[in-house]
């Protein structure tokens, strides 16, 4: 699938889609969206890029193997749950800063939890797809 149009388009589409994915992720608490959808959109962006430019280039672009996203995401989610325990609250109780940010709203532990989900979903999806497309049995 080495179409020039697709290749050119995907180079522009990748940052745009990623931006959109982050947008969807961050607004999830107030409007439709969230970590799952955001992660899936980001994965689609990378898959599209790999179709156009070849898997090796996408891997290069990512710099880290996709599997590395999984532990990072899991750690973020778990830490966001553990954080309230530092101030004596039970595991996974929500805590918020009082600063209001546009789109995101209040910044709090659920947001970080969602970011963790985002990374896990990217990691899982890309690991599965890249592994399958790479291996020739």
């Amino acid at each position: 699938m080495k179409s020039i149009i697709l290749k050119t388009a995907s180079n522009y589409l990748l940052p745009l889609l990623l931006l959109f994915a982050v947008f969807i992720l961050l607004r999830g608490h107030y409007k439709p969206g969230g970590g799952f959808v955001g992660g899936l959109i980001a994965s689609i962006a990378f898959v599209l890029h790999s179709f156009a430019n070849g898997l090796q280039n996408t891997r290069k672009l990512l710099r880290y193997p996709p599997g590395a996203f999984i532990p990072v995401g899991l750690a973020i989610s778990l830490l966001s749950g553990l954080a309230p325990m530092l101030i004596g609250k039970p595991f996974m109780s929500g805590e918020w800063l009082s600063v209001q940010v546009p789109i995101i709203g209040l910044i709090g532990t659920p947001l970080f939890f969602d970011i963790g989900v985002f990374f896990v979903v990217i990691g899982v999806t890309l690991t599965i797809l890249f592994t399958i497309s790479e291996s020739i049995l």
């Binding site: 799952f36 999806t125 599965i128 592994t131 399958i132 049995l137």
Partner: peptide
Amino acid sequence: ILTAIVISFGLQSFAIVLLKRVHA
């Protein structure tokens, strides 16, 4: 359902790979 959709993706991909493996 949202949870189910995402999980079923994991299930399907695992099933596909298993199938491919068996076929190989």
